[in-house]
Amino acid sequence: MAVLNDEVREQAKKVFSELKNRVKLVDFTQEVECRYCRENRMLAEELASTSDKIDVETFDFVKDKDKARECRVNKIPAMLVVGEKDYGIKFYGLPAGYEFASLMEAIKIVSNGNSGLAPESKEMLKKLSHPAHIQVFVTLTCPYCPQAVRLAHKLAFESELIQADMVESSEFPHLVNKYGVFAVPKVIINESIQFEGTLPEKTFIERMLS
């Protein structure tokens, strides 16, 4: 059975009819697929079927460990949104619920080559001198979370130094425990900077630069 219903698929088709450049959804699963690994792969395949601009490539996290290392994938289910290059835009855990919108947004950003960040934000990003790994912990029922995920992905698109992951909390309880995630969205940057809630673009970048 398909993961997307007909209505959602039709809407996605409509949204993706405006895509410009090719986008690849790179999916990592394993031979014996966990429930959401399977659904994550199916989601990538079903989205690819909605547009001739979207391709899908599936890897086995265990067998293709070199590819996983190259893509800096350290857990599954994982999905990367890749364009001309790998911008460091990742989804760990099935992006369902409110996060489906974040996935669609990431595809549009990569395909159309426009993050939509304000010019001042792009200017501020130039000050970043070290690699930044942004992890945004979410739940699928949180209406405020996609705002944080989208911003993190926009930043990754704009800066080669930034990797940005959506992390679906219930899929990775050990990480929820490790980082003390008690409220979402929770943002972790390079293990050291942590904050809850959604911040405006400028404030988010300031926190990252601090």
Binding site: N5, Q11, A96, G97, F100, A101, E105, T139, S170
Partner: peptide, 13 residues
């Protein structure tokens, strides 16, 4: 998490 129950929400237009 129960993705079937939650479903997939489309982005705002």
């Amino acid at each position: 998490m129960d993705a079937e129950r939650i479903g997939f929400f489309l982005p705002e237009e």
